[in-house]
């Protein structure tokens, strides 16, 4: 990798859920592990998230949802990415996501789900290894 290259991550909070702790902690953590994190703040529509991801040319979108609306919102983000030929952007999710919803999330194209107790290093390692893998394709 070129010395100047940085992995760019969009941390987004879709919907009206205002629980920001996880999103902010992950943003700080990834910054301290050398990532460039674009944080969009609360109350993003899924269309806005897709638009931001494209304009910012991010490698990864991290969605943080604690309102129970994760299935609808995530599906809409992924649909939006496909419509914009941007399905190469890695999508990961975090927040309160019940175990039984994880398969559905994965099926719709979420690469990983990180819930309470995950470490930031885990998240960072996942991003690095997944990005590395697909770059070799």
């Amino acid at each position: 990798m070129n010395q100047q290259e940085r992995i760019r991550v969009l941390i987004a909070k879709p919907g009206l859920d205002g629980h920001e702790r996880g999103a902010r902690v992950v943003a700080y953590g990834l910054r301290d592990l050398g990532f460039e994190v674009i944080y969009t703040g609360l109350r993003q529509t899924t269309a806005q998230i897709v638009q931001a991801a494209i304009q910012e040319d991010v490698d990864v979108i991290g969605l943080s949802i604690l309102s129970g609306a994760h299935l609808t919102l995530t599906e809409n983000v992924i649909k939006g990415l496909k419509e914009n030929q941007a399905e190469d952007i890695l999508v990961i999710a975090g927040g309160i996501i019940p175990e039984e919803d994880k398969p559905a999330m994965q099926q719709m194209g979420v690469h990983a789900v990180f819930t309470a107790g995950s470490s930031i290093e885990e998240i960072a390692d996942f991003i690095k290894s997944t990005k590395g893998e697909s770059a070799d394709d």
Binding site: L16, T45, G68, A69
Partner: peptide
Amino acid sequence: DLATQCGFDSDSLYAEGEVGRV
């Protein structure tokens, strides 16, 4: 629900997926 808490009616763009949820 969050739409009500944030001052949006159920037909608002911001209510997407939120109506009656929490």
